[in-house]
């Protein structure tokens, strides 16, 4: 992230702090535009701040290797990691890489499935946040027909 101590940067920072204080978890992601970010790096920055991202083999990220129809790509993220509070799915090559963020309550299992659009062949990432640590696993998905055409 570039450090530019302009007034705008400062005002944004203030706003971000205020937002962080008032919204927990993914509401914060929404409020600060993680969904509007156009680079995976900025998505991660908004979602997880400075937390280091640890590659993990404990995340099951099911996604087809080849998606015949990019408009409907089934994705499942599940993990055995304890104390999961958040799961995020990011597709690097999509115009806005962040697809979905799930706030996992104490009484739900860290196992979610949905269907997402993948514009073109891309690296897909699943992030799992647990007890102040962030874990990630990646998959590659090849798309033969684009997802952005609906």
């Amino acid at each position: 992230m570039k450090t530019n101590f302009s007034r705008r940067w400062f005002v944004k920072g203030l706003a971000a702090v205020a937002v962080m204080a008032s919204f927990p978890g993914a509401a914060f992601a929404r409020a600060t535009g993680a969904f509007k970010a156009d680079k995976t790096n900025s998505v991660v920055n908004v979602l997880f701040g400075d937390l280091p991202i640890e590659a993990s083999s404990q995340i099951t990220f099911r996604l087809p290797d080849i998606a015949e129809n990019g408009a409907v790509v089934p994705a499942t993220v599940a993990t055995e990691i304890e104390g999961v509070t958040q799961i995020a799915i990011v597709i690097d090559e999509n115009p806005n890489p962040l697809s979905a963020v799930f706030d996992i309550g104490e009484s739900s299992v860290a196992d979610v499935s949905t269907r997402i659009k993948v514009g073109k062949s891309s690296v897909a990432r699943a992030y799992v946040k647990s007890r102040g640590r962030v874990f990630m696993t990646t998959r590659e998905v090849k798309v033969t027909i684009g997802g952005c055409g609906g």
Partner: peptide
């Protein structure tokens, strides 16, 4: 009581499918 909240962008497919598990 709230057990799960999903936040989506427009890149979730049309007529969304969503599955989750309760402990």
């Amino acid at each position: 009581s709230e057990v799960m909240t999903a936040h989506w962008g427009p890149s979730v497919s049309k007529d969304p499918y969503f599955s989750f598990k309760i402990k």
